[in-house]
Design a protein around this nucleic acid. Sequence first.
DNA 1: CGTTTGACTTTCG
DNA 2: ACGAAAGCCAAAC
Length: 113
Amino acid sequence: MANDRDERIRAEVQTVPAGYVTTYGAVARRVGGCTARMVGAAMASLPDGSGIPWHRVINGQGRISVPGGAGHRQRQLLEAEGVAFDLRGRVNLTVFGWGNADEILDMFDPPTA
DNA sequence: CGTTTGACTTTCG
DNA sequence: ACGAAAGCCAAAC
């Protein structure tokens, strides 16, 4: 069983729709009271098949931060959802970044509100 | 209880 | 644009 903070992080990640990505920092900022590293730690501790779209969470540089084969798997999952990677293996957060759009959508229609 | 580590971010060269 | 260094905070040692 996880802590309340981890649950909030998971809930926030759940709000990211397929075809979009968010960043650790954006999630941390939205959850509040936690940092980007904690979001990463929360994802790392997720059990397999938890139903959490952990693959939609990448770092602020639009790059995969997941080590090992899981990283390659994450990229495949995102491409399957329509997220495009450039030649350097980076995602354009201006286009696919849900975390980037949160401030814009904030004055429109907050996903959690 | 001090030290090390990490699925991060930002700044500097 | 890229790599290195520092900053951060909690969990693991």
